[in-house]
């Protein structure tokens, strides 16, 4: 059997551009699941996953390497940054399914569907706002907010993980576009 290597959707980042006030970096592989269901499913999944699922739409909760993002009234994106190997991912699916039991729900593995980009630095919001049509000031988009939106012509999930840090979740084939677009923007904000 030949070696089966994983090829991430985004190559490793090149040298950061000098004088650029924002860092763009692809994040390592993670396990991701879309969970759909009602409150009973939410409670059961939270226990098994290791972080209580948020009940307020467009917010995220994080405990250690596990995060849950509520993206719709009955939709959560579960992200396990500590899990990427197929066996471990499969084990997590089994744990979740076993906790959910007969509670009506849908749990779908989307680990490879999307990838993540870290956008960090004091011009992070400014850089994103070249393409993201949401108000990213902290009053309007506080730390812990996470929502689907658009980045110019690609759909993304935008998640604020710190005052100057965002995580962009994007489908794999759109990831180079989002990365290239944000890179282009990040390099142009030079002082005049």
């Amino acid at each position: 059997m030949p070696e089966i290597a994983r090829r991430p959707a985004l190559p490793a980042p090149g040298e950061p551009f000098p004088g650029v006030a924002v860092t763009l970096a692809p994040l390592p592989a993670a396990a991701r699941f879309v969970l759909r269901g009602d409150l009973a499913a939410v409670a059961a999944a939270g226990n098994a996953f290791g972080v209580a699922l948020p009940s307020r739409i467009n917010t995220a909760s994080t405990l250690g390497a596990r995060s849950a993002l509520m993206l719709g009234p009955d939709e959560w994106l579960l992200v396990a940054d500590d899990t990427s190997a197929p066996d471990a991912t499969w084990a997590l699916v089994r744990a979740l399914e076993s906790a959910l039991g007969t509670v009506p729900h849908s749990l779908v593995d989307v680990s490879h569907r999307q990838t993540a980009i870290r956008v960090e630095g004091h011009e992070a919001a400014l850089t994103l706002n070249a393409a993201v049509p949401l108000d990213l000031c902290e009053e309007a988009f506080p730390v812990g907010m996470a929502t689907r939106t658009i980045c110019e012509k690609a759909e993304i999930v935008l998640w604020r993980t710190g005052p100057r840090a965002f995580r962009v979740e994007v489908w794999r084939s759109f990831a180079p576009y989002v990365m290239d677009l944000l890179s282009a923007v990040s390099q142009e904000n030079v002082p005049d």
Binding site: I57, N58, G72, P73, P133, L134, T149, I150
Partner: peptide
């Protein structure tokens, strides 16, 4: 571009998302 209040998100969001 219009702003549209999503009754599920309970916020005004840009038309581009709709």
């Amino acid at each position: 571009m219009l702003l549209i209040r999503c009754p599920y998100c309970q916020t005004d969001r840009p038309e581009l998302e709709f």
